[in-house]
């Protein structure tokens, strides 16, 4: 428990540092929000009035602390280009991005763990050859290209899934989920390729451990030893990799959402960047950072469940 409390404190401190760095970078980026809102031809006194209304004329640290206080209250300010509050904007977009990345993470685990384990069970066997081919291709191919192939090869040819767009969850659970299937496959395949490799290597390494021989000497069949002794001990590197992959997954979502024209956080970040909607960018980036750190915190907590040796003795 102490270990978890410690990493929770670490998480909060890191988030503070990250938020400060983001704010600092946004400060350095050229572009005046008031000018962006009113346009280049706005009168100087109108600009000054809007600046003071937005609080832009206050010192750096005051604006930074105002942002933090706003964050704690759930008030992220209003978007310069969308006429809604940033928190509402992010909330709406999360309804797409969270299920999308969640589904992709789930798919990549469901593909890679069984494939990696079975490949490791018989090195150089048929499954192993297929797994190594799959991971070679999956690592080499970028996710947006997989997305394009899926649109061409599956959506447009068979018509089972929409080629793009998102009807919203109000349109019914299944039709909304249906729109997320192909994008999540596109996101999952490169991830699954990396995870397959990691799983295979981890399982092969544990297979040579002494305790596996002990289990076999007890009379355990090869498959019993594999699933009961080897795989649980191989989970640490797999979960570590999965945690690191989540950030790659979120970065990948930016591209894949654009390919499938999904109204998610990725498209939001992309459009906000194109339109210099600094306040949206600032909050979206912090949000991504918070998700990645939250996942890492969970992975850290999971270690102690997976490996009893890591539990701190009281």
């Amino acid at each position: 428990m102490r270990h978890i409390a410690q990493s929770l404190v670490g998480l909060i401190i890191t988030l503070l540092v990250v938020s400060f760095v983001i704010f600092l970078v946004m400060e350095a980026v050229p572009g005046d929000p008031a000018e962006i809102i009113l346009g280049m031809s706005a009168a100087p006194d109108t600009l000054a009035a809007l600046r003071s209304q937005l609080g832009l004329d206050q010192p750096f640290l005051v604006r930074y602390s105002n942002w933090l206080i706003g964050l704690l209250q759930g008030d992220l300010g209003d978007s310069y280009t969308y006429s809604t509050s940033v928190s509402q904007l992010i909330g709406e977009r999360l309804e797409v991005t969270l299920p999308l990345t969640g589904l992709a993470a789930l798919l990549s685990v469901l593909i890679s763990v069984p494939l990696g384990v079975l490949a490791a069970a018989r090195p150089n066997g048929l499954v192993d050859m297929f797994a190594s081919l799959f991971s070679q291709i999956g690592i080499a191919v970028p996710n947006f290209w997989v997305g394009l192939l899926l649109i061409l090869g599956v959506a447009l040819t068979f018509g089972w899934f929409p080629a793009g767009g998102f009807p919203g969850w109000d349109a019914g659970f299944w039709s909304a989920l249906n729109a997320l299937i192909l994008p999540s496959i596109a996101l999952a395949i490169p991830q699954a390729a990396v995870l397959t490799r990691v799983t295979r290597a981890a399982v092969i390494e544990v297979t040579n451990e002494d305790f596996v021989r002990t289990a076999r000497a007890k009379g355990a069949t090869p498959s019993h030893a594999l699933w009961r002794h080897i795989v649980p001990n191989a989970m640490i590197p797999i979960v570590t990799m999965l945690g690191m992959q989540i950030s790659v997954l979120i970065a990948g979502a930016v591209l894949v959402e654009n390919v499938f024209t999904l109204p998610g956080m990725g498209t939001l970040a992309y459009q906000a960047l194109a339109q210099r909607d600094l306040i949206v960018i600032q909050n979206v980036v912090l949000f991504f950072a918070a998700i990645v750190m939250g996942i890492n915190f969970l992975v850290d907590a999971l270690y102690t469940v997976l490996d009893p040796r890591l539990r701190v003795r009281r």
Binding site: E209, D210, F211, T214, R216, A217, G219, N233
Partner: peptide, 21 residues
């Protein structure tokens, strides 16, 4: 046969047991 009729004890007690069980 293994375990039930023939038992075996190994050299390295530090590594011969499953650390996660």
């Amino acid at each position: 046969l293994r375990g039930s009729r023939i038992g075996m004890i190994f050299q390295e007690p530090m590594t011969a047991l499953n650390p996660a069980m």
